[in-house]
Design a protein around this nucleic acid. Structure first.
Lengths: 344, 344
DNA sequence: GTCCCGAGTGGAACCGGTTCCACTTTTGTA
DNA sequence: TACAAAAGTGGAACCGGTTCCACTCGGGAC
């Protein structure tokens, strides 16, 4: 258990001062004679020297680290997102500290405190919606915050990367209307989330432009976690005029919703047309393969990281940025024209 | 962008020395008069003081951080595992730095270097199999290493947490043999991994105890990533005496394997009985629902974290520990008795 | 030949904690 | 009551980097 060499060991072995070694480490921080630079580099190599991150953080006051705050990794959407972000970050020499909130503002608050202690220079997050002051304070401290997937309207000054929620919901609704459906149910996240609201708006807009009434009974804005999605589905199928089509507009709710449909023996698409927001690989393997809105995770990851790093490097125009990326609609075989038997 | 208070600010405001404040921060490091402790705590509260992690790390020489090194988070197995570990770690006040290897020893090596720079006090990893010296050096530096899921035999001194690979493979094979199958194919990870080897052994043992010959043609130890699983399946179905049953013994290979079966229109279970190693929620929703070996992720996560933390806290018996947890076999509807039409 | 400027260098303070040690004040016990 | 042991406290060194500053050179301009 021998301890690794320090910058002073390197300096001594190379016959220079620590200042010189430090300047070799950080090329832009000052001049070094080419010969000495070579010498120092060789000594570093020989000694197997690696600078301690903590020491640098302490004196610089910032860490080459970003925090990634997501709901939970059991949700394949976040898992993929995290995967891409970690991968992308590494290629820029940035480490990622991962925290999960389980959709609980209290846990989120804790995470933010921890990230502040760590002096992270950026945070990418899918916020729960709470902790408004805390997010603001984080920015106050010079931490670059980027919200991905969702946003918090009250926080005007953060960068946001999301998919075109309104548009995606609108398009899928229009698709179903085009198949003749007039009773289309929507299961989505709570109205307290930006995504929940935007998707309901898109759904509503599609109805309006088709001059179709919107039945509030068919819109279920329910919590992400637990079986809320499945329960909403169960309840939807027992109302007087049950829907002939269903859009499950949030990844987190797809699993429980589909499970409920399978359990209830609902025939898809003959009895119910189904569209889900998801790019889970399994949707394709089910029978029938599900029609999905595919969220371009790579784009979300790349853009949010670019924003954080761009801010870190300091060279990005002032004001907040909103980046919306397009989501693809992939029709497969879970939607069918409405049949006379079902039309009321 | 005002900067947060330091320990000296607290000390000044509370009218004590920094030593006292530090002792309040670390209760076991020395005595503090109850009255002063209260005073200091109140001042901390008022000032919103939080100790900077980097400073502590620097003087202590270790960080309250662990590294989590997994292949990739797109694999639901690792995603769940990571989720549980992050969750479990937080409840112990430990942060997790996440790194992915993409099954590439070179990237793994980089990750290990980075983790050393960060002075993490522990690492939980699913090793690629390479970098033997590097793992050893990490331990040399006092980092507690725990391998989860897989192991590296050459590294005698690391703790390992895994499922009963031999046993799981043996049981699923026996189950199929019990249904009358005699040509059972196995798709699993490379022989260079401990899991690959153990599962092949279990498979072989089941054959031997049933006095059934083992046809090497039916065993496909292929890479985890890419479409190797699917390709193996494709090839297996075209050999002279094709298998009547298939065990896909690695989570990472399930997706591409099942996709290939679906694409080829293979009838499950009439044409082919199928068992997969996976606890992906979607296996249950497919038709037919797949019989699976369910890996007890929670147990893997909890045990590996307990090991790391236990070592960190110093109070765990010397020598390396091997913890094997039982995996459940969940028969569903993807296996059927071999039919006369298929029996050769 | 002077003067000036920039490249190159080392010394030392600093970042914000922890910890050792010396010192004073209690407390307990004989 | 006396004295050793324990509790409580503050000063200062230390962890390993970064950075500011003062200083020494050399070469070019005048």
């Amino acid at each position: 258990m021998k301890k690794p060499p320090t910058i002073r060991d390197v300096a001594a072995a190379a016959g220079v001062s620590v200042s010189v070694v430090s300047r070799v480490l950080n090329p832009d921080s000052g001049p070094v004679a080419p010969a000495k630079r070579q010498g120092v580099l060789r000594v570093m190599e020989e000694l197997g020297y690696r600078p301690r991150a903590a020491a640098r953080e302490l004196s610089v006051g910032k860490a080459l680290t970003i925090g990634l705050v997501v709901t939970d990794l059991s949700n394949p959407f976040f898992a993929h997102l995290a995967d891409r972000i970690v991968w992308e970050a590494r290629s820029h020499g940035v480490q990622v500290v991962l925290m999960t909130t389980q959709e609980d503002p209290h846990l989120e608050a804790e995470s933010l405190d921890t990230l502040m202690d760590r002096s992270v220079s950026g945070v990418i997050a899918t916020p729960t919606g709470g902790n408004i002051e805390k997010w603001a304070r984080l920015q106050d401290l010079g931490v670059n915050v980027v919200f991905v997937d969702r946003t918090i309207e009250e926080l005007g000054s953060v960068d946001v990367v999301s998919i075109e929620n309104f548009d995606s919901a609108q398009r899928s609704t229009e698709y179903l209307i085009g198949l003749g459906h007039s009773r289309i149910a929507l299961v989505t996240g709570p109205k307290s989330t930006s995504t929940g609201r935007a998707r309901i708006s898109g759904y509503t807009a599609a109805h309006e432009s088709a001059s179709l009434p919107v039945d509030p009974l068919l819109i279920r804005d329910v919590p992400f976690r637990g079986d809320a999605g499945g329960d909403a589905v169960g309840s939807l199928l027992t109302i007087p005029q049950p829907p002939t089509a269903l859009i499950v507009a949030n990844t987190a709710q797809v699993r429980s919703s589909v499970r409920r449909l399978v359990q209830m023996g609902v025939d898809i698409p003959d009895q119910l047309s189904l569209i889900v927001f998801d790019d889970n690989p399994w949707t394709e393997l089910m029978s029938p393969p599900l029609s999905v809105i595919r969220q371009p995770l790579d784009m979300l990851a790349v853009h949010s990281l670019e924003l954080v790093l761009g801010r870190m490097r300091g060279k990005l125009p002032e004001g907040p940025r909103l980046i919306e990326v397009k989501a693809d609609f992939l029709p497969r075989n879970s939607c069918a024209p409405v049949t006379s038997a079902l039309a009321h």
